[in-house]
Design a protein around this nucleic acid. Structure first.
Lengths: 367, 367
DNA sequence: CCAAAGGATGGAACCGGTTCCAGCGGCTTG
DNA sequence: CAAGCCGCTGGAACCGGTTCCATCCTTTGG
């Protein structure tokens, strides 16, 4: 028994009169250990209060059984759901997960440097971050397995949705309800250098443009407002649109969070939703259901879970499969969108897009 | 140079013609290394693509520089904000953070067992979980430093708010607006055995009762509805209250999430807020601001940050200070609460509670 | 009754760093 | 000029497990 300090496996071995190998076997899957031996060793372990060192085991074993997940703006609902999905799977698979929250490019670089310059985790999941060619090279050089969610990184397995199609679906939903003047509220396009470089908003805008074009409508930049992320900013932008001499009858917000800002702006401007203004968001976060917000649903939790599964498969050395895994989108019609007054009923909207179902969902609010 | 496999510190030492000790000094704070030596070693490191093993370093150093945070229902906004606050501080302090999400008692036990039965992290932050005496003993026996947030654990440093006072403040706010029939919507009280045993809702209910009593009002159990957590359930409970022959003119929801359910129920029942129904929540999550929800604000992010700071201090061996750290609460008056029609203006509400300021905040919505 | 097969076991080597201590020039000081 | 100090350095011991291999003790088969 150790005179002082931590109890080690050697102490346990000595105290129970067996070798360290046997103790190790007892602790782990204990194949080939006589039942009586096992029991006596377990007793000693309990008596001595022995706690195996995870570090020593990992070092010896050669793998930390830990993965890192790098996620920007952790507090946003969509990021959290992706994280939660990944955590669930990694938990099941027996991995520890260290979470790296990233709010600025500086933080991003800090964490990416730590992950590539030291051997610390078995693999990394990157969420919504558009990594530069340099970073990708760093990971490859370091031999750190990498998968991405909500970001198409060349050469890296990624789980994404078709944001362009999603933008189209949202816009087509509004078009099918008879709307012709449709506003857009989304994030400003920024470079990866000065910001984290999200692209979803940009792509959804593309889908919006495509849908308008397909419908033979002019793309009116006056109806497009972009600014920093966040509901409060979206509210201002929407207020601008509503103050226009010829305001839109519907607004497509690039995310549900921003859609909530739009709803607030509408409320403040005294516009009834959906009577005087239709609003559709993107993501289908929990609040969307509560607020009766129509939206384009993407499987947020699944996306995290899928990425985690793929990473685990990769670590197990299994086949990688196609680099790009695309998850389906779906328009969810709640009570924030309605037929434009004065436009006759039209045939069911044509929903282009990867998996364009459209569900009618009974929801609270806006009756 | 190693013929194959990972590059080790010995390889670097050999390749640069110095000893391992010197390489180690270069990698870390490099005190007492000649500048020319340092540079040549760094060059070799880059050339060989050497990545120091975090595991080996931790084992040798004796500390993993990692802490675990156990948080229930990660996807709820309040849990996320606490987590985010803790992450920020731990990041600054150079700790890795492994996140243990817990949705069921089984998961809780699984993670707590892992944390106590193996030496894996330097310390643990527990959020909102009421740990049993047995678990506390396990942690003490294992010598794992522990701090708690939003849960008063005996003998453990904890960062909390006074939920009873908060409940009182919310109710007094409504009373000061002339309301006399005030409903309550909150979580069902469950034992720690069958559920995770949150107590906040229960305590806020106590505050509600106290405030009523202080105002000389009868406690009417018919106005109190409790059920499983979640906005959807709260919506149902609120609907019950609104369907009463003599419905309440105001409702206090034990959390903002539940308050959102109440708002949805009011909307669905055609009750205008705050004209026909006042609603106040608790927490001040981001949505509350957007929805113009009056609420009792608690510093969620700070609570996580404070707990992390205390844990770091504890690990550094500093003084622990008082076990209980209490953060202030504050009523935020937005546009979901208003004077009861027909009741004259009354003097400013008396706000009991630890630090009872009351702020008037201009907010969007419900004009 | 003896040999072969196989389960249980002990223990050395190893994982890859950190740290401490001894050693070695070179420079200051008396 | 010798003693003393200090900055830099090399390297062995150690952190606490896992794993593999040699060994020993049983069984089972012939």
């Amino acid at each position: 028994m150790a005179p002082s300090g931590r109890v080690t496996i050697a102490d346990v071995a000595a105290a129970s009169g067996v070798g360290v190998g046997t103790v190790s076997r007892v602790i782990n899957g204990g194949a080939n250990v006589r039942e009586s031996t096992r029991r006596s060793v377990l007793t000693v372990i309990k008596q001595l209060g022995y706690r195996p060192s995870y570090l020593a085991a990992s070092l010896s074993r050669g793998t930390p059984r830990t993965i890192a997940i790098v996620v920007p703006h952790l507090t946003t609902p969509s990021a959290v759901m992706r994280l939660a999905g990944a955590l669930t799977v990694l938990d099941e698979q027996g991995y520890d997960t260290v979470v790296c929250n990233v709010d600025t490019p500086g933080q991003r670089n800090h964490h990416l440097t730590a992950l590539t310059s030291r051997y610390r985790v078995d693999g990394v999941i990157v969420v919504s971050l558009r990594l530069s060619r340099q970073w990708l090279a760093s990971f490859r050089r370091a031999g750190v397995p990498l998968v991405a969610v909500d970001a198409a990184l060349t050469g890296v397995p990624h789980t994404v949705t078709d944001d362009v199609a999603g933008g189209r679906m949202a816009t087509e939903h509004l078009l099918s309800l008879g709307h012709r003047r449709i506003g857009f509220v989304g994030d400003r396009h920024l470079t990866a250098r000065t910001d984290l470089g999200f692209t979803a908003s940009q792509q959804r805008l593309c889908g919006y443009q495509q849908a308008l074009q397909n419908a033979g409508l002019e793309y009116d930049t006056g109806l497009v407002r972009r600014g920093p992320h966040g509901a409060a900013n979206a509210e201002e932008l929407a207020a601008e649109l509503l103050a226009l001499p010829d305001p839109p009858s519907a607004i497509f917000a690039a995310s549900d969070t921003q859609a909530m800002g739009v709803l607030a702006a509408a409320d403040r401007a005294g516009r009834r939703v959906p009577g005087e203004l239709s609003v559709i968001g993107f993501d289908d976060i929990e609040s969307a259901m509560l607020l009766g917000l129509s939206t384009v649903r993407q499987p947020l939790e699944d996306s995290g879970a899928e990425a985690a599964r793929r990473l685990c498969g990769l670590l197990r050395g299994g086949p990688i499969g196609p680099l790009r895994q695309q998850l389906p989108l779906e328009v969810v019609h709640r009570s924030s969108t309605a037929r434009l007054r004065g436009s006759g009923p039209s045939p069911a909207g044509v929903c282009a897009g990867s998996a364009a179902h459209m569900t009618e969902v009974g929801a609270a609010g806006r009756t």
